[in-house]
Simulated assay, not measured.
Amino acid sequence: MNINITAAELRGVVDYMDVVTEKLYDVDGWTDIEQVNRSEMGGVEVTELRLYNRYIESDDIKRVHVYYYGMNDETPDDKIVVEVDVA
């Protein structure tokens, strides 16, 4: 599952992870999101998360990679600035 976030969706948002978190909670079945790692690779901020349900005993944990490409006032509204890959 992939989720793309455009520059228009992030205008006026202080922390892009707030938008990412909101979209991830729309995915059915998850109660918690835990950050595992955050790094920068070639100018792209990469954050690894895991999704799980604390009320269900299960090994069904989803790994999530968030790629933030950055943006500024000149970034076109329709440009994808965050890609979220849920594995």
Rank of each mutant, 00 (worst) to 15 (best):
M1V: 12
N2G: 12
I3P: 10
I3Y: 12
N4Q: 15
I5Q: 01
T6C: 07
A7H: 05
A8I: 03
L10C: 06
L10N: 08
L10P: 05
G12H: 04
G12F: 03
G12M: 09
G12K: 01
Y16K: 00
Y16C: 01
Y16F: 15
M17C: 09
V19R: 00
V20R: 01
T21V: 02
E22M: 02
E22H: 07
L24F: 03
D26C: 01
D26K: 01
D28A: 06
E34K: 11
E34S: 11
V36M: 11
E40I: 12
E40A: 11
G42N: 12
G42P: 00
G42L: 08
V44L: 12
V44G: 13
E45G: 06
T47W: 02
E48W: 05
L49A: 01
L49N: 01
L49T: 02
L49Q: 04
R50I: 12
R50F: 04
L51N: 06
L51W: 05
N53F: 09
N53M: 10
Y55T: 14
I56L: 14
S58K: 00
D59F: 03
D59H: 06
D59T: 11
I61T: 15
K62M: 09
R63K: 13
V64M: 06
Y67C: 11
Y67N: 11
Y68L: 05
Y69G: 07
G70N: 13
M71D: 01
N72M: 05
N72W: 04
E74D: 11
P76E: 10
D77Y: 06
I80E: 04
V81K: 05
V82Y: 05
E83D: 13
A87D: 15
A87V: 12
